[in-house]
Design a protein around this nucleic acid. Sequence first.
DNA 1: TGGCAAAGGCTTTTT
DNA 2: GCCTTTGCCA
Length: 788
Amino acid sequence: MEDSLPNSDPAGLLASLTSAQREAAAHIDGPLLILAGPGSGKTRVVTHRVANLLLHGVAPGQILALTFTNKAADEMRQRVERLTQCRGVWMGTFHSFCARLLRQYATLVGLHENYSIYDADDSRRVLKEVLHSRAEPITHTSPEAIASAISWAKNSLVTADQYVPRANSTVGAIVARVYPEYQQRLIASNACDFDDLLLHVATLLREQEELRAQLDARYRYILVDEYQDTNLAQYAIVRALSIDHPNLAVTGDPDQSIYGWRGANLSNILEFEKDFTRVAVVRLEQNFRSTPNILQVADHLISFNVRRKPKRLFTDNPPASPVRLVVYPTGSDEADGIAQRIAEEVLAGRRRPGDCAVFYRVNALSRPIEHALRLQGIPYQIVNGLEFYQRKEIKDVLAYLHLVNNPQNDLALLRIINTPARGIGKTTLERLTSYARRKRICLLDAARQSGLVQAIPKRTATQIAKFVAALDRMSLHAGGPLQETMVAVLRESGYRDWLAESDSEEDQERLANVEELLTAAEEFDRQHPEAEQALELFLEQAALVADTDALETEQDRVTLMTLHAAKGLEFPVVFIVAAEHGLLPHERSSEDPEKIEEERRLLFVGITRAKQELQLSCAQYRAFRGERRPTIPSQFLMELPREELSYSEPVGYPSELDADDDFDDRRDDGDDLGGLDDSDDRDERPRRRGSVWSDEDFVQDSPVEYDEDDSQDGESRRGNRSGHAAPSSGRVQLFVPGMMVWHPDYGTGMVLSVSGSGLKRKAQIEFVQGGGTKSFLVAHSPLEPVPE
DNA sequence: TGGCAAAGGCTTTTT
DNA sequence: GCCTTTGCCA
């Protein structure tokens, strides 16, 4: 506070900042809370603050900047270096920071310095094996549910021996039995999962006071980005490092907290001011990113949330085009429409592909969009799912490396002992595993003794011995440059030959990927020429890279990604698709009001990524698990300010479909087209006061059907159209039980029951915000339908 | 033991 | 609809 005035800025470093930004950037000692709205120049403030600390004589090694993604860390690093020409500030994700710390203090938590990091897939395998070996009945639940329960426990700092299941929770009971053994196996394999990285470090800091004090003194200035997304473990870590030197600066926005499902605790940011004494609070509310139209939409939407710190978002940017809300007949029409629009904009020279981004709630929604973009010949990139390090062939090669680095890594051994095929099958492995368990040794040691195992035939034992010998030859190359190690692995394992000799196109592609990994190794060697444990570092990096890190901003491509992945990014043009009930909000969130708020924040994040243009859309029918189903518009669409929106149904799609009339059933009941016909007497939408929706948009039993499939594919149109109820008696019954509604005073609610008919028709409704059941005369109520 | 075909299950979001 | 797991046969 005292010396955080502009006059302590001799280099004029902070001159370009606004006064609020400058206040935050100039702050030096003591806790600092920066409440930063979207597009408020937060990164700018943080990087300037780091630069300012350096300028005031703080040593780079005393500063620790923690982010959630490597990408955010890289960007921060680059910007700080540009500002100060100074290196040596530790910037990285929580996970990589903890991984590095654990290398040093591994023995204190029962690991060795060469421990392996299991990714989600690896830990899932271990868990499944534990479940299997204990013959746990997992009907009515799934390994995923159990895994996430364990993950939740770890993120809440509950260790295996502390875990107490909630009364009569089936999953909890299983977790209580399985968690300890799962943990034992990790330790026995000298491995830890993602959550352990945090949990081990938190434990370390709690139990080793001397070490804690030492690290507290070393990392004197700590910055945490996206503080609203920290979980209890992360909180404990930064808290423990900020006791003697409470120079903790956190930035975040409660409205952008979207990781509650993985244990993020909104209270961390909401109660920061209570956690520390004499907290300086700076609010960054001016938005430099978006048009006022976009900002208005975002602001209006998020105001429906209850659990938040109210703030006012404003911008000096000039007004621009309204936010578009588009209803497409089907999901593929949506994809086509968006691809077409982008194509037009690009062709007209108004936009480049790289200006545009498409966001969706679940990864599965990317397919139709990819397809449509490909048809239009628009280059795109997907930030998602199966990225490089998750591919089978890459994981195989990495498993060899893992085993070389950490011989106790049983999971890695199981993965590659028979890849390529060496005649070591399932039964042999079972025998080997039970032998290892009996002798309490790792699988590799068991393999070394396979000749002694009675149950394993001589012939097979010889095969195993050959494998072990090959592995030992690889290990001879372990100390040197990474590339050399990897070449040895590919040679001695026979993996490369195996792929090279295959005729299948798939294997050739795999070979290419393996070559790419080799290139990555080469690059790694170049960047870390002096590294003694290159192998260890490389494996660590491979385990901790995230999907979003692969994002290439250089390339001029449309970017496709989930709403979660979009956080922290911005694009001139943004499309958010599938704003439909069950998808956004996701069905697994739709009962719990708190989760609904998180879904709303997710949409808020998506909206505020847009700089100039924003389109929200939904479809009236969407293919889901191979089945086409009518959809319900998202309740969030009702929460947008009408005056900022332009509403449209694109013309053309329905008529195109109508032209293709070799399917007579399409025209059944065709006189009630529910707002989808191509006549032009309805372009006056929105017509209904107080809502962008007209009654026709809520037709429950639309008599019209549109195929999701490409029109040339006649096959897909036969058979009965399931997921589609029979047409009802003409006019739609707007309120039916289970349907979502909106009331100007009470917000969103659900219809519990209806009674009466005509003007006397009543609906009993329970509102999300609570307050019990309320009853309304449908005809006279201001209820807006969000049907279900 | 290994390869192939059929059946089953699955879908949030990520370090 | 797609991917993974299971089961059967050579």
